[in-house]
Amino acid sequence: MIFVALLIIFPLGWTVYLSLTDAEGSVRAAKEFVGISNFIEVLTDTDRFWPATGRTFAFTAVVLIFEVVLGMATALLLWRPFRGEKWVRVAILLPLVATPVAVGMMWRLIFDPNIGLANTVIGWFGIPPQPWLAGQATALPTTMFIDIWQWTPMVVLILLAGLTSLSDEPQEAALIDGANAWQRFRHITLPLLMPTVIVAILLRGIDALKTFDILYATKGKGGGSFHEVETLNVYAYGLSFDYNDYGISSTVLIIFFLIIVGSMWALTARRKDAA
């Protein structure tokens, strides 16, 4: 536990220290203590920081809603035994096998506006070619789709584990009383499964907030030429490794860390209430 604590405390403490200095060029270069001026500069930055914050929350909210809804629907379909269920489960879990960078590169080829398969397929239905990742308005929704495609199976696994642990007696009693499928789900299954749903939201929500690899693999530096998919993670990475502005970058990371901790606390409190 001491070893793990040191692995967390030292990097966090060093980042806090850098956030209070004007460190740039090199972390070993001479630096001056500037107090909270970096935080004031970041929090008043309406060109990059706040738009990146908005994209971060928009990305997280959209993918989380779709992944939980689709994950719940799929888990309910897989809940009861059926012929070939093992093969279906394997097929559903395949997106989790690949690394996010490989997934990003694969979908980047599929959504290529000139040679990509996506425009070829929609062309069969008379739909004109779309810019997908190349468009300012379509890039962020497209990356959301990629994240949903890869990580919905994780939600399915969590919810399916919760469903299989539920007792059959409440379902059987409701069935005898004449409750239909929707009524059984709404009044029995969902309330009993709510602690597991909160766990799925907690795990995927925190992970979605920190999404970096898919965005960087599909759009590169700065989240695109017009920063169309630049989230806080991508923004902080660019400040550190593209501009070597370690003081501002550390400030962004500390603010981002506080956002993540606050979100985790809120979801954990909601889980206790649900339990």
Rank of each mutant, 00 (worst) to 15 (best):
A139L: 04
I115S: 04
T15D: 04
E85I: 14
Y237F: 13
Y237V: 01
F49A: 02
F49V: 09
M106T: 10
Q136T: 12
T21Y: 14
L43G: 06
V27S: 09
D147E: 10
I8F: 15
T196G: 00
V90K: 04
A173V: 11
I110R: 05
Y237Q: 03
T56F: 07
G35N: 03
R28Q: 03
W87K: 09
I127P: 08
E172H: 10
F241I: 09
N38G: 07
T189R: 06
A5C: 12
A91V: 11
S26L: 12
L203G: 07
D45A: 03
G222E: 01
G126L: 09
G13A: 10
V16R: 00
F257E: 02
L209D: 11
V261Q: 08
M1P: 11
K31M: 02
G54H: 07
T44Q: 13
M106E: 01
A266I: 15
E169M: 01
P95I: 07
M144V: 14
R55S: 09
Y17L: 05
V156L: 11
D147H: 06
F10H: 02
P51W: 04
W132C: 05
V199W: 03
G220C: 06
D245M: 12
L109D: 08
Q171N: 05
S37L: 09
I122V: 15
A217Y: 14
K272L: 13
L157E: 00
L7F: 14
F125H: 07
A208H: 03
G262C: 13
G54K: 09
L215S: 08
H187M: 08
D147F: 04
F59M: 06
R204V: 14
W107S: 02
S19M: 07
L202M: 15
Y235C: 05
E67D: 13
A29F: 05
Q130H: 10
R28T: 12
V97I: 15
L258P: 12
N180M: 05
S37P: 06
F111Q: 00
V4F: 11
W149I: 01
F111C: 01
L159T: 00
L117R: 04
A23N: 04
S250A: 15
I127D: 03
T143E: 04
G35R: 02
V101W: 10
L166Q: 12
